[in-house]
Design a protein around this nucleic acid. Structure first.
Lengths: 338, 338
DNA sequence: CCGTATTACTTAAACGATAAACCGAATCGG
DNA sequence: CCGATTCGGTTTATCGTTTAAGTAATACGG
């Protein structure tokens, strides 16, 4: 289709190698005469030459492409981080192939295999559930990848996560300091390690205040159709636990739904103390006094990309120092608005 | 790195061709004996063979990859549509390379060139501003692409857009019917054709009601730092135009900021009639009575992908009928809540 | 029993770019 | 004046896959 090195070489009666060298800026180094260099450059421009990066990839064994697999791009947090990752990757000359797993395990596995078949140099993955199958395959093959947001405690991989237990602890500690006693913990997806950790932070704060956490204050809105499930949970809370004096939302998604619920029913969110992990702009209106733990998304995106690129580099030059897997915990920024 | 056809061929003492045929399911057709086929299949499985799709792409001249360029993935509307596009493309065996242009022209141009160099089979693009340079290049080269959300009136391309003028007309028509007279039109990015069209719909509704639209009721919050700009605009409206009795937000982004502004200052949004193009879930709480025009995102995503794939297919088989460029207007779903 | 099919494969070329190895002619040092 | 170096390139192989063309060996029909 397009113009190839061969086309240029043919019209100028040179070899493709010469043309390749000059266009790669190695003209002087390779002792190509200045006039010839100029002829090649001009011809290339005139014919509108664009290198075929697929051919280059095949030859060099490097595609300068990364894979990104998220549960859903249509989520405030993931779309933010996707943007950061893309921007950071671009700085180093990498493009992103993007796939959404829909939190389905078989989809995720397919995507990993497909991205590897398409020869991406590395994969950034927010893994679903706790199936390490495809993840283990990458480990076995020494294929560069980083988990982020979620990870598996029992598998030794690169990962970048926030300080889930710690930030929950601090938020709840603060609520308890301010007088809350019955903090409803609204969670989802109970098998997700990071959500368990957030609840553990909740429990630790209670205990360090000399109180025993009440398991009856934990509600789970299943993730499938979480809008409706959140409504059901809120209904139940207001019906059965009038003693609730504070809310801890384990994720922004749940908080938004719960706040909409309250607003629609004329319940003033100001009546309760509130805390939420992650932050969305709508909070400014829906719950101006909510306390939040915000991830420095830029830092997380950057760190994730850097770890992956380090991993990739160390794999390319074998003589360099062996790559050591990195487990990174990004500290959150707490904002107390009450 | 990985296992190649050659590796299998070598261990079985066969030619790569035979292996390639069998693994492609052409064993019978190509008269490869059943025992040999079985041997190849088993060996392939044991060695964990995964085809190198980059090599296949180079050979076939088809990458089964599409490019997607958006102003920002971190926008409710674009992230929704990105998800739909990805899902639909996947059905046909295509992967997405994703780039955000940041609405910067030179970035957009670079992304287009890069994606083409990476040999994507086609590009889906929400173009920035009105520079047709790189777009024209794709046209000249007969490279398959579709514009969506935004387009250029004077260039003959595939595009998929919503009925911008029409839905604005209907929303404003409704507000006027319900008694509004001074509808503040909050817009942004004045050079964007589709936003101009939305304002034209506003004007047409006024005129068809026998009224002359007041240019003083149009406010522009520049897109760069639109949060602050929206605040400035709202300040000005409340200071200088106490006669405003309704708001028309030309985009959901502006509406959210304006509604947060009002809520923070204790201004009841219920005092005003309201209309907005696009819809976000926070509206349910921030402005339950807002009237909206919602894009059927699924339909738009699907249609966009289908047009692009048709374009790609028609380019591949030359004997088929010539591809006719398609301009599609997706009708919006109006929801009147007042 | 000979010519033609059929079976079961292999060889070779191609996709476009890169890189190691090679090569003839001119130049230079001693 | 001869050997070595520099100049200005070219040849060839390679990455992993696909496909058109070829080729032995066997089977078959008349």
């Amino acid at each position: 289709m397009g113009v190839s090195l061969k086309d240029i070489a043919l019209t100028l009666k040179l070899s493709t190698t010469t043309v390749s060298w000059v266009l790669a800026g190695k003209g002087d180094e390779k002792n190509i005469s200045r006039p010839t260099q100029k002829r090649i450059l001009e011809c290339s421009r005139k014919m509108g030459y664009q290198p075929n990066l697929i051919a280059r990839s095949l030859n060099l064994g490097v595609s300068k492409t990364l894979g990104l697999i998220l549960p859903s791009i249509n989520d405030r947090f993931y779309s933010q981080i996707a943007e950061e990752i893309e921007l950071e990757a671009e700085k180093f000359g990498y493009t992103l192939m993007f796939c959404s797993s829909g939190s389905e395990l078989d989809r995720e596995t397919r995507m990993i295999d497909m991205l590897r078949a398409k020869q991406v140099d590395g994969i950034i993955l927010a893994p679903t559930k706790l199936s390490p199958l495809s993840v283990q395959a990458m480990l076995d093959d020494d294929f560069p990848f980083v988990l982020f947001d979620r990870y598996f405690a029992d598998i030794d991989t690169n990962y970048v996560v926030m300080d889930n237990e710690e930030c929950s602890y601090k938020l709840i500690d603060h609520l308890l300091d301010k007088g809350a006693r019955n903090i409803a913990a609204i969670t989802t997806n109970p098998h997700l390690l990071i959500l368990q950790q957030r609840y553990q932070g909740y429990c630790r704060a209670y205990r360090e205040h000399g109180l025993e956490p009440d398991p009856g204050l934990k509600w789970t809105a299943l993730f499938a159709n979480f809008e409706n499930n959140t409504v059901a949970v809120m209904d139940e809370i207001f019906r059965t636990r009038p003693d609730v004096d504070a809310f801890f939302f384990i994720s922004h998604i749940l908080a938004v739904e719960a706040l909409i619920y309250m607003t629609q029913r004329g319940i003033d969110p100001g009546r309760f103390q509130m805390a939420c992990i992650h932050e969305v702009s709508a909070f400014r209106a829906l719950a101006p006094k909510i306390n939040t733990a915000r991830i420095p998304v830029e830092a997380m995106g950057r760190e994730t990309v850097h770890i992956l690129l380090d991993n990739i580099r160390s794999k390319v030059d074998k003589n360099g120092p062996a790559f050591v897997k990195r487990a990174t915990m990004i500290p959150t920024t707490l904002t107390f608005r009450d």
